[in-house]
Amino acid sequence: MAAEQWFANLSFYVVALVTLASALGVVLARQVIHAACLLLPTLAGIAALFALLGGHLLMAIQILVYVGAINVLIIFAVLLLHRQVDRQRRILAGTQHLFAGVTGAGAVTLALVVGALFSNLPQLVGGEQGRFGDDVVAGIGEMFLTKYLLAFELTGILLLVTMIGAIVLARKERDQ
């Protein structure tokens, strides 16, 4: 048991190190495209942390939404807007290092705080699994349709509005 605990700790530290290092890379990267690509190990590392805590649903959703969708979107934006971003970077060149340093320090501090909170998280996750039994997905789905129905429906409406907004914006561009 002690050996397994030790192994779990080791995996946590390796994953945390990778996540933090790539997060620092995101902030310190000279090229925007490198920063955008380094988001991948950062977000995937967070997914790995969820997996270590036994939250498999959260891990899968984290990969699907953040890595598979949001990160792709960011990289797309960088590819399409690269020239403009370059120009802005030249304007910001003087303050860049200061800005990067402050943000990096902030990120590390935040990560340390989150790390301190992690000591409580295993119990929380264990509690969820205890409440829902084996089938966490079904349990969460039921909560969505009973206790959190209003929030769930509101989120749905928000997404619908966003989608319609995106279509309207895209059409206006084309008409001009």
Binding site: H56, A60, I63, V67, G68, A69, V72
Partner: peptide, 18 residues
């Protein structure tokens, strides 16, 4: 035997686009 196997498969394979 992951409880969320199918979501995992979709999520992981969609990373290939990157």
């Amino acid at each position: 035997d992951l409880n969320v196997g199918l979501i995992y498969v979709i999520g992981v394979t969609s990373v290939g686009v990157l």
